[in-house]
Amino acid sequence: MPEFLSDEQLTALRTSLRRAGHARFPLLRPDIDDLAAQTVADLWKYLLERAPGPALGADAIQRIAHAIFNRRAADLFRKTRPMLAAAAVAAPAPATEAEPADERAGDLATTALYRSMLRVCVAELSTISEQDQMAVAIATGLASSAGDALTAAERQRLHRVRKRLAAAIQRELGEDAYKLLRDLS
């Protein structure tokens, strides 16, 4: 094993990747351990094949690992999105007597907030430029990009659109909706 990372650092890196995965990608929770293992394998490959140069510090290695992990998670999400969308649309299970009334009311309030957020997003998306609309369509799979990854310009456009949507949600629905949105991402 190369001397890039000690066993303790490797264990800490895997734990960090799993924790970040559970926090940032809740829909991919069953796959997080596999993604973390694949990321560590890719990181080892990168470190072994890397051109000679200055040694990387633990922080740099961690940033590289998280970048690899985020890309793998995004790719997996793109592949599994149709199945996740179908599961999200499925009818909710009927309430049981064991489920408290407060919990059901909280679900209804959250659902209403999500609907309001959706209305704000649709209204805001109708006002964005045609290039931004195309970038969103490619990212969501509504437009064909022939399986190519988004370009840097398209990713920057998406970033600006996301910020614009978040600002609109905060402006229209208040800080609680914006906090919920931040907690989901």
Rank of each mutant, 00 (worst) to 15 (best):
D102E: 12
L173P: 01
K179F: 15
K45Y: 06
E49C: 05
L173H: 05
L180A: 13
A87T: 02
E97I: 12
I32S: 03
D42L: 12
A73P: 13
L84T: 09
V161Q: 01
D33Q: 04
A86E: 11
R115F: 03
L56K: 05
A146K: 07
A36I: 06
E3T: 14
A58C: 03
T127Y: 00
E103T: 13
A37G: 00
D59V: 11
R24G: 04
E154I: 12
A105Y: 08
R155G: 14
L84Q: 06
E130F: 07
V89N: 00
I169R: 14
L47M: 06
R50L: 07
I128N: 01
K179Q: 11
S16C: 00
S126D: 10
H159P: 02
P54Q: 15
A20Y: 03
D148K: 15
T80A: 07
S6G: 15
A88C: 01
H159N: 12
T96A: 10
R164C: 08
R160G: 03
L56G: 01
F4T: 13
I61K: 04
T39W: 10
K79Q: 12
G106Q: 14
P54G: 12
E175R: 05
T15W: 07
L17P: 02
D7C: 10
Q133D: 06
E8H: 06
A137H: 02
Q38K: 04
S6F: 12
G141C: 07
A60I: 06
T15V: 09
A87V: 04
E124S: 11
A58F: 05
T140R: 08
S6N: 15
L184P: 03
I169K: 07
P100N: 07
M134G: 11
P100R: 07
I68G: 09
L56R: 06
A167D: 15
T127N: 01
V122G: 01
I138S: 05
S126W: 00
W44H: 11
